[in-house]
Design a protein around this nucleic acid. Structure first.
Lengths: 154, 154
DNA sequence: TATTGTTATACTCTATAACTATA
DNA sequence: TATAGTTATAGAGTATAACAATA
């Protein structure tokens, strides 16, 4: 195995460390790390569709639905019919959900502090920027992919 | 939500993009992204215990066991009794496992290329280093944690 | 006493495919 | 024809606790 593997592997181990720490921190609140991300995505207040929610939190509609079912049971989230598109649902966070999110945000401060304290401010900025670049490189269809798609589709 | 959330969220989205791309790429080989990491960890050839395997791949013994059961069924991995510690198992990759790993390595090249091509060489180096720092900050017990443990334990 | 691994168990996230109802 | 969401279903990873064997 060449050292090309370094970046993927360390990306994985950094994320898993974050994910574990978050789950441990949120467990006593009855919420998972991924559910926290969903609540955070809704916490700005605007109602969005399930599809958009999935997109924004790097998930997929089927997974989001399973998560919403759990969160709705706990009264943290609400689904209403969409005002203009009868196919769509309009998902929003409830008052209880917002209260829960505030608690979770506090509970997670220790974790964010650990991460940011380990870096200089400019390093943190650089890291965010580099991670965004990586994420984009993996989600954008490459030129080669598009050529292939055109070939296949005729 | 303050912008403290940026780093955790972009770390998550970069990792999930990598994880999805890897799973998609490896699916036709009948292997998951996480199983690939397990095989990669064993690919250096040396037999290690399940506990050490779990540690090295940022997993836990129970999960590793479930994964080994799957991989052993496929003949990619082998468990033998440990030479000096009768409690432990000695896990190693089989010839078929190594062959599979070579295929997976090739199949994953496209993904690694996408990541590395999006960065300057020095940016890639910096990113690896920063991610390592983050991962360490989250796995090391903090001074505060240790003080707490001492208090609790008396 | 502490540690390695197993067993049993449960839950969350993930994902695909077939379906409906709308657009 | 394409899209939003549901349903059914399956599998993979995660994690905890109780246990046996061994250190």
């Amino acid at each position: 195995m060449s050292n090309d593997a370094e970046l993927p592997l360390v990306l994985r181990s950094a994320y898993l460390a974050l994910h574990r720490a978050s789950n441990a921190q949120f467990a006593s609140h009855g919420v998972t790390a991924d559910q926290f991300v969903l609540l955070a995505t809704l916490s700005e207040g605007k109602a969005i569709t399930q599809r958009e929610l999935a997109l924004r939190m790097s998930s997929d509609p089927s997974t989001v639905r399973a998560m919403l079912n759990l969160l709705e049971k706990g009264g943290l989230v609400r689904r209403a019919s969409h005002p203009t598109d009868a196919r769509a649902k309009s998902v929003s966070i409830t008052t209880a959900g917002n209260r829960k999110f505030q608690q979770l945000w506090k509970a997670g401060q220790k974790i964010r502090d650990k991460m940011y304290d380990s870096l200089d401010p400019d390093e943190a900025t650089a890291l965010v920027s580099l991670l965004r670049t990586i994420a984009d490189s993996l989600t954008q269809e490459s030129a080669a992919d598009l050529r292939l798609a055109n070939t296949v589709l005729g």
